Simulated assay, not measured.
Amino acid sequence: MSPPLADQMPLSRQQVLELLGGSDDDWLFSRARLATELAFGDQVFMRGIVEFSNHCRNDCHYCGLRSANREVVRYRLSHNQILEAADQVASFGMGTLVLQSGDDTKFRCDDITQLIHQINAKHKLAITLSLGDRSLEELKAWREAGADRYLLKMETFNRRLFAESRPKANFDERLDRLKGIQALGYQTGCGIITDLPGMTDEILAQDIIELTRLKLDMIACGPFVAHPQTPMALSGNGCVLKSHRVSAILRLMNPGANIPATSSLEALEPGARALALLRGCNVVMPSFTPQHVFSKYDIYPGKNAAKAFLRERLEVIRNQIKQHGLEPSSARGDSRSH
Score class of each variant (00 low, 15 high):
225 V>Q: 06
199 M>C: 10
29 F>G: 02
118 Q>C: 06
23 S>Q: 14
90 A>S: 15
332 R>H: 15
296 K>E: 13
195 D>L: 04
17 L>N: 05
285 M>H: 02
119 I>G: 06
178 L>M: 12
288 F>W: 04
140 K>T: 10
40 F>A: 11
1 M>G: 12
192 I>R: 05
215 K>N: 15
139 L>P: 04
169 A>N: 08
327 E>V: 14
235 S>H: 13
18 E>M: 08
131 L>G: 09
164 E>R: 14
100 Q>G: 01
248 A>V: 10
187 Q>L: 13
188 T>A: 15
285 M>S: 13
303 K>D: 01
192 I>N: 06
205 A>R: 11
114 Q>G: 05
306 A>H: 08
250 L>C: 14
77 L>Q: 03
132 G>L: 10
252 L>R: 06
174 R>A: 01
308 A>R: 13
114 Q>A: 07
326 L>P: 10
259 I>E: 09
15 Q>K: 13
38 L>G: 01
196 L>S: 03
5 L>W: 03
322 K>I: 11
10 P>C: 04
80 N>K: 13
231 P>Q: 01
230 T>R: 11
145 A>M: 05
219 I>R: 07
206 Q>D: 15
51 E>W: 06
51 E>T: 06
301 P>V: 13
213 R>Q: 15
242 K>I: 10
214 L>K: 03
23 S>G: 04
37 E>N: 09
53 S>L: 11
270 P>Q: 07
18 E>D: 14
185 G>D: 15
334 D>V: 01
156 T>H: 10
25 D>E: 15
198 G>V: 10
107 F>V: 06
62 Y>G: 00
216 L>I: 04
154 M>F: 10
249 I>S: 05
192 I>H: 05
289 T>L: 05
31 R>F: 02
125 L>G: 07
310 L>W: 01
299 I>G: 00
145 A>C: 08
27 W>R: 08
50 V>A: 09
156 T>P: 07
299 I>V: 15
38 L>Y: 06
270 P>C: 04
89 V>L: 09
280 G>Y: 04
270 P>K: 13
230 T>H: 08
70 R>Q: 15
205 A>P: 07
328 P>D: 10
67 S>L: 12
230 T>S: 05
201 D>K: 14
267 A>N: 02
64 G>S: 03
148 D>C: 00
326 L>V: 11
113 T>M: 09
101 S>E: 09
208 I>A: 10
77 L>P: 01
197 P>G: 05
112 I>W: 08
285 M>T: 08
84 E>K: 14
260 P>I: 02
320 Q>S: 14
144 E>Y: 07
75 Y>Q: 07
254 N>G: 05
73 V>T: 14
130 S>V: 07
238 G>I: 14
301 P>W: 15
220 A>Y: 13
331 A>D: 14
144 E>V: 13
185 G>V: 13
289 T>M: 05
70 R>P: 00
198 G>A: 08
310 L>T: 03
327 E>I: 13
93 G>E: 11
215 K>I: 00
36 T>C: 12
33 R>L: 05
83 L>I: 07
1 M>K: 11
123 H>D: 06
254 N>V: 04
103 D>S: 05
320 Q>T: 06
